[in-house]
């Protein structure tokens, strides 16, 4: 009996130890694989997002080019023809001169609009002179009699990667647009500052604010904010919304100026 108990206990103990070691080893191995898979999925998702953004930029570029090269050229030719027609009409039918002048001014306006849309689609200043100049231009364009957009920027901004430049510019564009269009802001400050290993972009306005949770819950709204998050996701950036209904908003964007996992190709203009 003594032997039976000893052998039985030894066998059971060995089995118990085996079970414990097996559970610990197998579980750890599986979880490691799961984590690797998740990491890959995350990387793939980021890649997909980056590709979507890249395609978006390509499309913007193509439309801008088409507008500039085809419609712009056609409008210029039309203007030339109209000028010729105007001169002929001036001699033969002076009463139609007003109509020609009106058409010419409409044509001028259309050419200017096409040029503006084309420029808005592709931030040429950003690619030629960098983020600060592009933001200066953006602030200048957005400012009018009612709205004043101010840019505050640290003197020594390190050279940023093109992808980071474009992301920050697009985000600033979106936030300023939101502040003017939805928050009815009158004074907007774009604050661009350098941090150790990164950049901090803040857009502060004195508008009427908004309820972030409500907007994020509604799928039809908050597309711009979601777009900001998606853009930042690709470059491992971070957004903080200091917002509330009834008061001005403070939105802070933090990005690292490091080589990202997923690179987005930025074509020169």
């Amino acid at each position: 009996m003594k032997l039976y108990i000893a052998v039985g206990t030894a066998v059971l103990l060995v089995m118990a130890i085996f079970i414990i070691v097996f559970v610990a080893y197998y579980q750890q191995k599986q979880i490691r694989q799961q984590l690797i898979l998740k990491e890959w999925q995350e990387k793939y998702r980021k890649g997909l997002l980056a590709a979507t953004l890249q395609a978006q930029e390509h499309e913007r570029r193509r439309i801008a080019q088409d507008l500039h090269d085809e419609i712009g050229t056609m409008l210029s030719v039309t203007k030339l023809s109209l000028n010729q027609l105007g001169r002929t009409v001036e001699h033969n039918d002076p009463s139609s001169t007003v109509l020609v002048q009106k058409t010419r001014s409409l044509l001028d306006e259309t050419i200017a609009n096409v040029r503006r849309i084309s420029r808005d689609l592709v931030p040429t200043t950003l690619e030629r002179f960098g983020l600060v100049s592009a933001l200066e231009e953006l602030a200048e364009k957005a400012s009018n009699g009612e709205v004043h957009v101010e840019l505050s920027c640290s003197d020594k901004l390190p050279p940023l990667m093109p992808q980071l430049d474009l992301t920050l510019f697009r985000i600033a564009q979106e936030l300023i647009n939101n502040a003017i269009k939805h928050a009815n802001a009158q004074h907007i400050i774009i604050d661009l500052h350098c941090q150790p290993n990164g950049i901090l972009l803040s857009v502060i306005d004195d508008g009427q604010g908004f309820d972030l949770d409500e907007i994020m819950k509604d799928r039809k709204r908050g597309l711009g904010l979601r777009n900001i998050e998606s853009r930042l996701n690709v470059i491992d950036g971070h957004v903080t919304f200091d917002v509330e209904e009834g008061r001005g908003s403070r939105i802070h964007i933090q990005v690292k100026n490091l080589k990202p996992e997923v690179e987005v190709e930025v074509e020169p203009v």
Binding site: Y4, I5, G8, T9, L12, L13, M15, A16, I17, I19, I20, V23, A24, Y26, Q27, Q28, Q30, I31, Q34, L35
Partner: peptide, 30 residues
Amino acid sequence: IEDMNVKDILKHSLFWISSGLILQFTGTFF
């Protein structure tokens, strides 16, 4: 093993408690 929801099993309280229990039960069963 089925759920695979514990990140680090060596930092999971119930794994240690269960291991202690199973060792005690098997060691004293006979």
